[in-house]
Computed example of a mutant assay.
Amino acid sequence: MTYRLSHSLTVDAAPPVVFALVSDVTRTGEWSPQCYRCEWDTGERGVGATFTGHNRTTDQEWSTVSAVVASDPNSEFSWEVVVTGTRWGYRLEPSSTGTLLTEYTEFTETGSAFYVDRYGDDAEKWFTIRRKDADEGIRHTLRRIKALAEDRP
């Protein structure tokens, strides 16, 4: 039970503008359909910094601690969920009209083992739900970030 997902779109804003937005985890609730709030756990904001994300769906509510694993204003901001090893992030590439923004996630064997431990015989069901929610969530998130970066409601 592993997967890699990613989607991209072009944002009509320069990479530093987009990076400033996506690297401010306290704003995540403005674009994520699932993570409604994040706060930094550490004073530092670069690689190694941790933050707590608060998530909810119609079926459950939970919080996770994540550690920043990449923070390069020219190309990437990403983090790893500590308990599952799931990686999430944004890649930025300059484009002729602004920034090609890619959001991605990688659900690894560590995450799979966590699901088996937590959900037992229902692990496959919850994995399938999680994958679908992640795919839909990435698309939604990118559209909202684009609107915010382009200063549209």
Rank of each mutant, 00 (worst) to 15 (best):
L21E: 02
G120D: 03
V47T: 10
T58H: 09
V17A: 15
I129C: 00
F51W: 14
S71T: 04
W40K: 00
V81G: 00
D72Q: 11
D24G: 07
A70I: 01
T108E: 07
F114R: 01
T84Y: 05
F19S: 02
D121M: 05
W31R: 01
L100I: 00
F127C: 06
T99N: 10
A70F: 00
R144H: 05
V25C: 06
F51V: 10
D59G: 07
P73F: 05
R37Y: 03
W126A: 00
L92H: 06
T128M: 03
T99V: 10
G120Y: 10
R91C: 12
L148S: 02
E44N: 09
T26K: 05
R118D: 04
I138K: 02
V17W: 01
K146C: 04
T128R: 11
A123W: 08
A20G: 14
I145W: 01
T28K: 09
A113E: 08
T86Q: 14
T50R: 15
S96K: 11
W79A: 10
W62A: 09
L101N: 04
C35P: 00
A149G: 11
T105A: 13
V81D: 08
E136Q: 12
S112Y: 03
P153I: 04
S112F: 05
W126C: 01
G43A: 13
W40M: 11
W62Q: 06
G111L: 03
A70L: 05
E61T: 13
D133W: 10
G53S: 13
S71H: 15
A20H: 05
E150Y: 09
R27L: 15
G120H: 03
G29W: 05
R118K: 13
D122A: 11
P153N: 01
T52N: 04
L142P: 03
P15H: 07
E76W: 05
V69P: 02
C35I: 15
E76R: 12
G53T: 08
R143V: 09
W88E: 08
V25M: 10
E103I: 05
G29L: 08
V18D: 01
W126Q: 12
T26Y: 01
T64C: 03
G111Y: 06
L100K: 14
E30L: 15
R56P: 07
E30R: 13
T97L: 14
P94V: 06
R139A: 14
S95M: 12
V83N: 02
F127K: 01
